[in-house]
Simulated scan of single mutants.
Amino acid sequence: MNDDPALFERFLEMLAAESGASPNTLSAYRSDLEQASRRLGGKLAIAGREELKQVGQHWSGLKNSSVARKSSSLRRFFGFLLEEGFRDEDPSDALPRPGISRNLPKVLSHEEIANLFSILKEKLEFDPVKPSDVRLSALLELLYGSGLRASELVTLERRSLAIDRQYLIVKGKGGKERLVPISDQARHSVRLWVSLTDPQEKYLFPSRKGHISRVRLFQIIKELAVQAGINPGKVSPHVLRHAFATHLLEGGADLRSLQTLLGHTDISTTQIYTHVDSARLVELVNDRHPLGRRNLSR
């Protein structure tokens, strides 16, 4: 697996569908990847940590902002390779990390989520209902209700879901399996979708080439966002995963539980969600801390 150009194209296609990246942004990603590939003799996709260290050392004379952008391009590319099964491990931790602040995840409000499900409900009330809308219902329920990654969702196998179980067996990054709770509503939506598909299919969301692609999943979700009156650039499967985590935290979930549900190896990855609940934390301090309950004017 050393076909860098072909993998670059697949990655950029995914990036365009996921975030609606502009041509200039895609061009910058392509440039960063191609430069690193040339330095490694066309073998960036199979590079290890030592090779990536050499690439990072070559950036030593650049500004922090440039190094951060190049590192981000390569890290995102290696994350794509891992999620798509082209690699079993991610060596990108060997790349430099200059002191650039990390962007907070996009968050959908409760009202925006309600709008998405409202449009979906209208679709499901048609008689006869379209199979594509039944599939959309199952996809949305699993994205927002269980916080699955896009790659985890599209590769779910039929055997992952059992009628007598209230959880899914999900294979996440690095091939690691975890149990993910599934709500009664999501189970109902998935069972309805399964009843419309061939029992011989391997995947829960099949297509002619195996399973629905990540790119098609992004397109479906953005189409629903437009119908719900939401800027499609603000909505993606990953944003719905963020909404799942954010709204759980607002509801009182702890970070350790959230880490398990999201399948994060390191809790530092989960801690980015702490920004969303600052109002509840202030209220907690004022209501529960001894100083908050005292009349300080006395």
Rank of each mutant, 00 (worst) to 15 (best):
D4W: 00
L140T: 05
R39Q: 15
Q57V: 00
Q259N: 04
S257H: 10
F8H: 14
S160P: 09
A138E: 13
V180R: 15
V215F: 11
R293W: 08
I169E: 13
S160Y: 05
V154S: 08
N115W: 06
I113N: 09
K43P: 00
D93S: 14
E18A: 12
G175S: 13
Y144C: 05
R187F: 03
D90H: 12
L62Q: 12
S297Y: 10
R280S: 11
L168R: 05
T265V: 10
H188E: 09
I272A: 01
I119R: 15
L217R: 01
N231I: 01
A47H: 09
E89W: 14
N231F: 00
E141W: 06
I46A: 14
S146W: 03
K106T: 07
N286L: 14
L258F: 03
Y144M: 00
L148S: 08
S236N: 09
R298H: 15
F78D: 05
S118L: 14
L196N: 01
A186C: 11
R158W: 00
N286G: 15
S60F: 07
R294S: 13
Q200T: 06
Q259S: 03
S22P: 04
H110E: 12
G172M: 10
R102C: 01
D93V: 05
I221L: 09
L74S: 07
T197D: 03
E112F: 11
S101M: 08
R298N: 13
S66E: 00
R87P: 11
W59H: 02
R39E: 13
D3H: 15
R158P: 00
A36L: 07
K43C: 15
L143K: 04
L156P: 08
G172W: 12
G292E: 06
A6L: 14
I230W: 11
A245K: 02
R280E: 10
V67G: 00
V282C: 08
H188N: 03
F205Q: 01
L108F: 01
Q200Y: 04
S207F: 10
S71L: 02
E34I: 09
N2V: 04
L262A: 03
D254M: 00
P290V: 04
R214T: 12
N295P: 07
F205S: 00
Y29E: 09
F11A: 07
E18H: 01
A36V: 08
R135W: 06
K123I: 02
A228P: 04
N231E: 11
R294N: 14
L108P: 04
G42I: 06
G61D: 09
S160F: 11
G145W: 02
R158V: 13
S151K: 02
R135H: 01
S109K: 10
L291R: 15
R69Y: 12
V134C: 05
I230G: 07
L124W: 04
E112P: 13
F126H: 12
D93R: 08
S60A: 15
F205C: 02
K171H: 10
G42A: 10
N286Y: 05
R97N: 10
K43G: 07
Q54A: 13
P128T: 08
F126I: 05
D133F: 08
P96Q: 02
A21K: 04
L52W: 03
I272P: 03
A138S: 13
L81R: 13
A225W: 02
R294P: 02
R135Y: 01
F8N: 07
S22V: 03
Y144T: 01
V235A: 08
S22I: 03
D90S: 06
